[in-house]
Simulated scan of single mutants.
Amino acid sequence: MQDEDASLLKAFAAGDNRAAQTLIERLSPRVLAQALRLLGNRSEAEDIMQEALLRLWRTAPTWQPRARVSTWLYRVTANLCLDRLRARCQMVSIDAVPGEMTAGDPAIIASLQQEARLDALRRALAELPERQALAVSLRFIEGLGNPEIAAIMDIGVEAVESLTARGKRALAAALSSKKEALGYADE
């Protein structure tokens, strides 16, 4: 399977720095967005993006196009994010606490509620088995189709469907007791 990214990667391996720049411009926004959605922290997402691209550069001289470059990079990014989530400390940084707040400010309340919802989702995802968490994240957060997820995870489409269905059920069960606290009681 040959794609334009693979051609650019091969050119980079041969010493073409412009090819590397083109790949960075093309792939880094997607890698950063994926890592940011999975981790919820821009600084950590940027670290993951750099590590994923470094791994791509190290692979360039021996690249074997068994998969598309973007598919390979999605897999590497997802694995790096899952490793980071496993290792992440459960401490809250003082920087995560909002500065000045006015009691009852609707914007502040909405912002805190959205952050609480995202945090609950990240925690629930972290509790899922790794393959379920990855399939659910790629399908419902990244918006990828089942065939693309199958390629990224190196499994069949039926396995993706099974993983996402089981993952959705597990997330629903994990989050059902938190509906009221997260502001979903009336929905």
Rank of each mutant, 00 (worst) to 15 (best):
L38H: 01
M101N: 09
E100H: 14
P106L: 08
E130D: 14
L125V: 00
L53T: 03
E180L: 11
M153F: 01
Q64F: 06
L182K: 06
E142V: 09
A107R: 14
D186I: 08
M49Y: 01
S7H: 15
A151W: 01
R75D: 05
V97E: 12
L121M: 12
A11K: 13
S70V: 08
S137K: 03
L23E: 12
K178E: 14
A35I: 00
L118G: 13
L163K: 02
I108N: 11
P106K: 11
I155S: 02
I108M: 12
V160F: 03
R18P: 04
L112I: 10
S28A: 15
A19P: 08
S28Y: 03
N41S: 08
R42E: 05
T164V: 13
A14P: 05
S28L: 08
Q132L: 02
E46M: 05
K10Y: 11
L121H: 05
I108D: 09
P147L: 10
W72E: 02
N146A: 12
A33L: 12
S162H: 13
A133R: 02
V160L: 05
I149R: 00
T77H: 00
Q64M: 08
E4G: 13
E44L: 10
V160C: 04
V97H: 08
P98W: 07
W72V: 00
E4D: 15
V160M: 03
R84Y: 01
L27I: 07
N146Y: 11
E100S: 13
T77E: 00
A60K: 04
S93M: 07
E115G: 13
S43C: 06
D5C: 11
G156M: 07
Y184I: 07
E44Q: 10
E187S: 11
Q2V: 14
Q34F: 04
M91H: 14
L121R: 06
A67K: 08
R75A: 09
E25V: 12
L118V: 05
E142M: 09
A11L: 07
E44D: 14
D47V: 01
L125S: 01
N41D: 13
Y74S: 00
E158R: 12
D154I: 09
L36D: 04
A19I: 13
Q90D: 14
A170R: 13
L118A: 13
T59R: 15
R68F: 10
P106C: 09
A165G: 13
A13Q: 09
L125M: 11
S70C: 10
N17R: 15
E130C: 00
A60F: 03
S70W: 07
R26C: 06
L85P: 01
E180W: 08
R131Q: 12
L8C: 14
R37G: 02
G40L: 03
L56H: 01
G156P: 05
G183P: 04
A181N: 11
L171N: 05
I149Q: 03
I48F: 02
G167R: 03
K168M: 12
N146V: 15
S137C: 10
